[in-house]
Design a protein around this nucleic acid. Structure first.
Lengths: 370, 370
DNA sequence: ATGAAAGCGCTAACAT
DNA sequence: ATGTTAGCGCTTTCAT
């Protein structure tokens, strides 16, 4: 066995000590009344079978006669025995825990994804250990538990700032999966089909008569941001539409959308393409404030709940959260994930009022170019 | 030892089987290349000390000479040894895992709380195991892992629908804490001071000249809902203001706020008190739609990010998330939590444009009643 | 202060 | 199909 670990985990010892020194150790110390749970050995003794029999009764597919198994399960229920997952982890070296790494919940898209994901994992018996990393501080220190807790798989959501070295360190020896984050060809990736989405939104703008389009980007250097933008520009070119201007504050936020819209308004686009809904909402408010909301259409990307609110009513491309979750669960649970690394799932165009306004140029509603 | 478990855990066996039958067992099976991590025994052998010495080196306060400890930690760092948390769980019966039970993330208030909470716990070395329960299905089945994984503490957020029996079952033998949920005097509870908040908002309405107030409730039967409402009504009475009407859809949502506002508008209030921000946002949009936004003021409760957006600019009472997290972490980590069960932390009035409009009744801005 | 030895509650290989 | 046995990697007495 190779003892040399070529990553230098500048973490371990130090962190361990810090944590324990803060008095966490006491969390369970007191509480002597906490009668220890029944063990399989006790249950076995009680009904006069071997301890292994109990273990087998709780292990599907193990060779045990149905009557015996039922008898064991029955008395287990009666005396309240439940297998101790910790102990089984130690022998099987499997935890059934998925480490979920997130870094920013301020975008309203993520709560919905998170909610459905944890439920989806739970449905197949996987637990979710949350890692909410603060970009500034020592990332590996924040993620030690991924290794010390023997997490079976790691799911990384969003534009989490993990460099390649940290990523490799965190995922070493376990299944890893990127959600809505591109750019790592060696790691399984599940995301919405950003190219199809952006093209589809441009098509819709074309069909509703817009020709002069502005673009408000989020993170321009992220692979997702680049994918959306290049799909946008190439479709624009294909349809002979005009890009009036591009801007970015390098963040997906309401305020960035507001600022971006204000910046593009002077160029008199008939529509602004926002790289995400949260940008678009800020942009819509800015456009209302500037009095051009009835002249400039807007589209977003994600379909967060607020986009459907009457105050915004934003046309957008809905991320297929359910499909994303299903695919994620599948990739995590199936024995052999197959060679495909990138799974880009189709979303859905959601047309709302933000593109229902009269186009300024009043261009004829030409059919789509072939 | 008492083997009788007076709860009937209708769960265990069944769930265990279901889960495993779905093929979770395979999640880690393949991956033979996963070189097993270094163990304390290997490290000990390598540097010629006993295995206990290694254990002690990583246990603060244990009797070990500083030079030896440093030597061990040093080589641990070099060969990449990290203590296996699973193994230590088995002997210490402590996991340093907090089970976080949530049931609804659609209210934008929770993501922020969740984010700060997981970070706060992480800062003191506690991991967060997420339980996102679906109200309909068998709750205990969704929470088995709280027991089988030996979670040290349980934090329950929000109006999670757990009946007393399930609550006791889930928290038995571990520290438990309710966040933003009242009504269980035997369980530690941390929440915002709802009474102070509601009174403070009424005071603000009074000071800005409103006298006829409507109330849009969320969940009228929840303890929090009742607290806010009764603080509201009693302060109203104290100040001699008029309650023009009350309504509720029994849910905290944008749509419910919209419907609630429409219902109250005919009664011509000068202000509507919404039991939460998400209700208020729906209400504001409804009032704009109805053309009465410049006549009826609005206040909410929580201060979610959207409330600060220019399109809404909602006056509200900000929940002290940071204080809530700090108190939670303290209660979970301190040795003896003390006798106080309910910790109601003061929030903060945030005045915005939704109460800056001219009051309809144009009542003189009387000083507050004593 | 250090080392040796006995488990923690389970799984899995080996018997029968 | 069932029982016996040997660990999983650590913590914790108990010696020294």
């Amino acid at each position: 066995m190779c003892l040399c670990n070529w990553f230098s985990p500048c973490v371990s010892a130090n962190y361990w000590n810090i944590a324990a020194a803060r008095g966490i150790g006491k969390l369970r110390k007191q509480n002597p009344k906490a009668s220890k749970p029944v063990t399989s050995r006790q249950l076995a003794a009680l009904i006069g079978v071997s301890q292994s029999a109990v273990s087998r009764a709780f292990t599907p597919g193990s060779s045990i006669a149905a009557p015996l198994r039922d008898r064991i399960l029955q008395s287990a229920r009666e005396i309240g025995y439940q297998p101790n997952a910790i102990a089984s982890m130690l022998t099987t070296r499997r935890t059934n825990i998925v480490g979920l790494v997130v870094s920013d919940m301020s975008n309203p898209f993520y709560p919905a994804l998170l909610e459905q994901l944890t439920q989806g994992l739970q449905r197949v018996g996987l637990q979710t250990l949350m890692f909410n990393i603060t970009p500034g501080a020592n990332i590996e220190e924040q993620l030690v538990a991924i290794r010390t807790y023997n997490v079976d798989a790691v799911v990384i959501i969003s534009a989490t700032v993990l460099n390649d070295r940290t990523l490799a360190w965190a995922t070493e020896g376990r299944r890893a999966l990127l959600l809505n984050r591109l750019g790592h060809d060696d790691i399984m990736t599940v995301c919405c089909d950003n190219t199809a989405g952006a093209r589809c939104l441009v098509d819709h703008l074309y069909e509703t008569g817009r020709r002069r389009i502005g673009y408000v980007a989020g993170l321009t250097k992220s692979a997702i941001g680049m994918t959306r933008y290049s799909a946008f520009t190439s479709r624009l070119a294909e349809l002979g539409m005009r890009l009036t201007g591009t801007t970015s504050q390098e963040i997906y936020s309401y305020d960035a959308g507001w600022a971006g819209a204000l910046e593009l308004i002077p160029q008199k686009p008939d529509a602004i393409f926002f790289a995400s809904d949260i940008l678009a909402l800020g942009g819509l408010d800015a456009m209302k404030q500037a009095g051009v909301a009835r002249e400039i259409a807007a589209v977003g990307f994600d379909d967060i709940p607020m986009s459907g609110w009457p105050g915004y009513s934003l046309t957008t491309y809905r991320q297929p959260i359910e499909k994303i979750v299903d695919k994620t669960v599948e990739l995590l649970t199936v024995a052999e994930p197959g060679p495909t690394r990138l799974h880009a799932l189709p979303g859905e165009l959601v047309v709302r009022a933000s593109t229902a306004i009269e186009p300024r140029s009043a261009a004829a509603l030409l059919p789509l170019a072939p």
